[in-house]
């Protein structure tokens, strides 16, 4: 008993140090911009940088549109598969996993070939078009997380019976999805949304190759040219990601309450 307890703690401490020491070191370094004292000078410089504001703002807007696109795409799809085509589920699950297997760089080169200015669908011919393509690309990257989150949410409700109950009361598909299905999987959708947000905020490859002014390429640029600011940015990025994760944790506490549990 005592011995196993000891080893459990030992493993935990080793794991935690592996994770925390670089983080703490980075944080400590980020505070040393001013010679001889700890200060948040690096953070002040970062936050004051107009390029930080512009790229961060750009990425937040792109993340929001990505989430909207993801929800519009995934909720009806996952719902329809649960309701009418359960045999299709393994196939769709496999497809949603592809973005984890295919590197983003492959996807983006595919985009550049497919949607160039001379192609039938010239997304890349205009700046707006490129933004749209970036959002579509991000929605693809977020697909594995979004689909799984929504599908898990749908598992907690009796999709078929609730749909029929709404139908017989006169509801059409938009009402059913908007007023019954979506609200009941909202917590799951929000977890998927925050995961998407975390992914989009730090993404580099797609934004860089499509030449869009996103936060990821900015991080890379600063990292290559400055000393203290990259450390501050790394800590900020971590804080954002952790913030998103804790929001997901908090949200999942509320989940069981909305579940349909006839006793």
């Amino acid at each position: 008993m005592k011995v196993s307890r000891f080893w459990a703690w030992a493993t935990f401490i080793v794991g935690a140090s592996y994770f925390f020491i670089p983080l703490i070191a980075t944080f400590e370094f980020s505070l040393r911009m001013k010679r001889g004292e700890y200060s948040f000078e690096a953070y002040r410089v970062v936050f004051a940088d107009p390029r930080f504001q512009a790229t961060f703002g750009y990425s937040v807007v792109v993340a929001i549109f990505t989430i909207l696109l993801g929800v519009l795409l995934v909720v009806p799809t996952a719902y329809w598969i649960r309701l009418r085509m359960p045999w299709l589920r393994p196939i769709v699950e496999f497809i949603t996993l592809l973005p984890l297997i295919i590197p983003a760089i492959v996807i983006v080169f595919g985009y550049i070939r497919m949607y160039g200015s001379n192609s039938p669908l010239p997304f890349l011919a205009s700046v707006r078009g490129t933004d749209v393509l970036l959002i579509i690309g991000y929605a693809t990257l977020a697909l594995p997380y979004m689909y799984r989150a929504v599908d898990t949410g749908l598992r907690t409700i009796d999709v078929a019976t609730l749909t029929e109950a709404a139908q017989i009361l006169g509801a059409g598909w938009v009402t059913i999805i908007g007023r019954i299905i979506l609200p009941n999987v909202l917590i799951a959708v929000l977890s998927g949304a925050f995961l998407t947000f975390a992914i989009v905020i730090g993404e580099f490859t797609m934004a860089s190759l499509l030449n869009r002014p996103a936060f990821g390429p900015y991080l890379q640029l600063i990292g290559a040219n400055r000393a203290y600011e990259p450390a501050a940015l790394a800590v900020i990025s971590f804080a954002i990601t952790w913030g998103c994760m804790s929001v997901i944790q908090v949200l999942s506490r509320f989940a069981p309450k909305s579940a349909n549990n006839p006793n």
Binding site: I157, D158, E164, I168, P183, N184, N260
Partner: peptide, 14 residues
Amino acid sequence: KVGMVFQAYALFPN
């Protein structure tokens, strides 16, 4: 214009 009651109640939980 038919009303239906299901075995599993099927009330909308939200």
